[in-house]
Design a protein around this nucleic acid. Structure first.
Lengths: 252, 252
DNA sequence: TCTTTTTTGTGACGGATATCACATCCTGCC
DNA sequence: GGCAGGATGTGATATCCGTCACAAAAAAGA
């Protein structure tokens, strides 16, 4: 399954952070005490964590809110503490292209950060989320000061890019059925790690993720439902025939 | 021109390195004396350069040679001292997908380097080239030891990724005419920085770069030639109507 | 120089899919 | 509750473009 030759993201393992606190309103007092840090932060000392702490502030977004707008200057790095976010671009009035869904415990905009001083992608909340703003100069400073931290960020950026690029490339040589299969498997394997979930997207957004038209997406989903490959009601989906779905994904 | 919102690559400016020596056979004695270093190397001290020097060796490839094969373990970083290289993948026996053309003064395989221990892309020489092998552990060591070097590498990787991803994305929402126009402009603006050049590709490779069939590529090129947009003979091409070509690129 | 292989151009054809059009359904909102 | 706007499903249609087939040209060997 070439499509899912995904590299484990260390920040998505339990080795890297403790489980979420039950109280999501919980405002931590200091980065020192934060137990949902990014895995790269493991190499930071207490003074360095304090440095981040002094330049950060927390914030909350509601479902549908735009967190970063493409073209805006990058003055902050945003760390996603909880919730799902979509990363996307739209070239002037053209159709929207969704790059990926970002899960909690990731930085937003890292890939744009070192290119120039502008955000190249937009980010919107798919559900209510909490984030941490970190001053960009502090971030730069840390990377230059602590080589190991830079190395970890480099690993993170590289994997992210490789995964996205890989997905995109595979996609581009597939037809609609294969693409829709990919999308379902993407949600199942990468995002929710479950056979049954609610798609956090409209049909249009789903189509934008895999680069097909809304109508085609609908048609293929209906077909998958009729054929018993998935059980689909509105946005709720359950995979009933995983092997077949994987084969469709593979064969295009 | 969204397609060409490319970030200047510092290692491609004269500020960053001196012009090539006239004698391309010239074997330098030490990294210290190398005047075609990657721009990131500017932040390295003499001991650090010596560290690289002790683990490196130079080599030459002939046109058509494969430099790195996808799937091979990454034990070296390869620095391209002169010549052009194509970066590509082919999923088993499927059609080849060319990611980009790499110019001299770039590292090969950087983006794969931090993901895992395998090369994800293949590299083949488009002309006779010279390279420098650098031991990967030395490279890792340097990044961790010298934060500024890591930062520069991070910048380099980020820009490269952003450019490729951007190009790829724009492409995916264009039709054949727009794609061929993109390819011509890519060679003209990015690779050769000239209105007139020899395409270092077969028609098939050109098609693989922009994700269309060979026949379509041929047909579009012929059409461009007939319409006086370009002057084309075999692999030699001269752009005669740049504005129109840009418009075709933009409108898809 | 001759042979073999690779590269290139061109026509005909069919299929996949985007687009248009419209009917339902759902959701928030006054 | 009723209305407006968005989201969804479905059919009909047009078209872009990949595939096949073959000839010609160029390149590579021998």
């Amino acid at each position: 399954m070439d499509f899912f030759r995904i590299f484990a993201h260390r920040n998505h393992t339990l080795l890297c952070h403790l489980p979420m606190l039950p109280d999501s309103e919980h405002q931590i007092l200091s980065c020192r005490d934060c137990n949902i840090r990014h895995c790269a932060a493991a190499v930071l000392g207490v003074e360095e964590l304090d440095l981040i702490n002094n330049s950060r502030h927390e914030s909350v977004f509601r479902k549908g809110d735009i967190i970063i707008h493409e073209g805006s200057p990058t003055s902050y790095i945003i760390y996603l503490k909880s919730g799902l976010v979509k990363e996307y671009i739209k070239g002037n009035q053209e159709k929207e292209q969704i790059l990926q869904i970002v899960r909690k415990f990731s930085y937003l905009g890292l890939s744009s950060l070192f290119g120039d001083k502008v955000n190249h992608y937009s980010y919107a909340a798919l559900e209510d989320i909490t984030v941490c703003y970190i001053d960009i100069s502090t971030f730069h400073q840390l990377i230059k000061k602590n080589g190991s931290f830079g190395f970890e960020i480099l690993v993170s950026v590289s994997r992210d890019n490789l995964n996205n690029f890989n997905r995109f490339m595979k996609q581009s040589q597939k037809k609609t059925y294969g693409r829709v299969a990919d999308a379902i498997l993407y949600f199942s394997k990468i995002i929710y790690e479950s056979n049954e979930f609610d798609i956090p997207f409209t049909r249009q957004e789903l189509a934008d993720l895999i680069g097909i038209s809304r109508e085609s997406a609908t048609r293929v989903l209906t077909k998958f439902n009729e054929d018993g490959i998935v059980d689909l009601h509105e946005r709720h989906i359950r995979i009933d025939n995983l092997p077949l779905l994987q084969q469709i994904s593979k064969n295009g």
